[in-house]
């Protein structure tokens, strides 16, 4: 099985949310459903510099959709089998004809990927644009990014090119679900487990 995944360049990302909007347009999503969400993690403190104190602040963005995890938290809890990991590309997809809308997957996912659609009565989520991928195209979010801060490819390729980092604050430890992502950290990125910052845009995610 080829496991596809996302590359997220947090050193380039300006938090413009073009990826989120391109996805929303392509997938025709309601206002309260976002397959891709941009988390702004920010914080700061003061550093002694001789006789003065200098502000030491940080703020950076992480564009997170579904990480199509190697061990997804959403799949084992699903009672209907609607939430499944595709054997051909490793993408985690919800079968919207089977889903009963019990929201168990949303409770379990530590990335907020499964998104409940109240109008449709079932779960929806990022499917990695698998139909585009099958045609040799990239997901629509990746192609929309004006900063070229996103990429999508087989994980082997991404890891060879960009390394193995799959966790920075405020993401959970990668050991929980084995997310299929590679992150290039912002120069101000805080390590996973950090609690010195806060989510600066809670109403946007």
């Amino acid at each position: 099985m080829t496991q596809y995944g996302f590359y997220i360049d947090s050193s380039k990302c300006t938090g413009c949310k073009t990826c989120q909007l391109a996805c929303k347009d392509y997938k025709d999503l309601d206002v309260d459903v976002n397959y891709r969400r941009i988390y702004e993690y920010a914080g700061g403190s003061w550093q002694a510099d001789g006789d003065t104190w200098q502000p030491s602040i940080f703020s950076y963005y992480l564009s997170i959709a579904c990480n199509h995890c190697a061990a997804p938290a959403c799949v084992p809890v699903c009672p209907s089998g609607a939430m499944h990991k595709r054997s051909e590309d490793g993408l985690v997809v919800v079968d919207t004809d089977t889903c009963i809308g019990c929201k168990s997957c949303a409770m379990a996912c530590p990335y907020g990927a499964p998104q409940y659609n109240a109008r449709k009565g079932h779960m929806t989520k990022c499917d990695g644009c698998y139909e585009r991928v099958a045609e040799g195209l990239k997901p629509v979010c990746v192609e929309s990014c004006p900063l070229r801060a996103l990429d999508f490819a087989p994980m082997e390729e991404l890891r060879e090119r960009y390394g193995n980092l799959a966790e920075v604050a405020p993401l959970p430890s990668a050991s929980l679900t084995g997310p299929s992502i590679v992150i290039k950290p912002n120069r101000n990125a805080r390590p996973v487990g950090d609690t010195t910052g806060s989510l600066a845009n809670p109403k946007e995610v």
């Binding site: 699903c78 209907s80 889903c99 009963i100 809308g101 019990c102 168990s104 449709k120 009565g121």
Partner: peptide, 24 residues
């Protein structure tokens, strides 16, 4: 609690694998 109550029987599809299926 379900978004699609008419599909409630689907909750049994993963009997043995999902604790929610087992519970129901």
């Amino acid at each position: 609690h379900l978004g699609s109550p008419l599909r409630a029987p689907n909750a049994l599809l993963r009997l043995g694998s999902s604790w929610l299926s087992n519970e129901i």
